[in-house]
Design a protein around this nucleic acid. Sequence first.
DNA 1: ATGTGTTTAAGTCAAG
DNA 2: CTTGACTTAAACACAT
Length: 260
Amino acid sequence: MPRPLKMTYGDQKPPYSYISLTAMAIIHSPQKLLPLSDIYRFIMEQFPYYQKNIQKWQNSLRHNLSFNDCFIKIPRNAKKGGKGSYWTLHPMAFNMFESGSLLRRRKRFQVKNLKKDMSNCNISVPRINEAGPYLDDKCLQIDFTEPYMHSHMKVADFLNYNISSPLHPLGVPKVPIRPKRAFTIENLISPDSTCTLRKNCVHIDYRENEYFNEPLNKTKLINPYFHSLNVLTAQCNFYMKTNLHNGQYGRISCYAQSHF
DNA sequence: ATGTGTTTAAGTCAAG
DNA sequence: CTTGACTTAAACACAT
């Protein structure tokens, strides 16, 4: 994980909202999702102001996570244990701070009929050990087909599903790497100049590829592909009912944010 | 007991 | 001035 530079506000209160601070922490994390405790840690490390009155601001931050549609809760892997869930940004909220400003947003990010908790959503994944065939370096498609054709489970169960082999049958895929940039607010919230966001596609960012280069038995995660798929499926699942015209089932393309 | 998450409510502040 | 984004506080439920 890249080591961020210390912000320079000292004991002064930084001019960022709790939403901004939380989004910063999530965006900066390798997998774009963090447990609450890591969000706290990030903010305290970057902004010494928040090393005081911890109970107060952490309460406010939790309020913001619950209240704001831009934050989505993803269940933990139950086998690993631990309190709470992971939090991520809604895919469409990654650029909610327009024109480089992390201060007040022009408009609150809201989604109709938002499901914040993915645990009990149904998901259908065909041939799970072969799921996610990489069409090329940057595009991954997952079929969400009718349940009777394939295995059908809740997202929470899916996250606990034990896969013994990598999802990609041909080994490590070539993952596009984002050029290293300085850790500044502007860089955090600005999109890559070369990125293309395709309408109606779930946006997945593979810019951090350190896990992919580690041998499986050394990585902290059970299976890096699986872990990415966790995020992917949670986000896909979120989109299923809104973006697929036939309701619940269909195919979703997931594009990496990279050079097209 | 403690951490996490939800909800309500009242207040501050800035943009329009 | 009004509206809405945001902060702060607090009560409560639930999980570990």
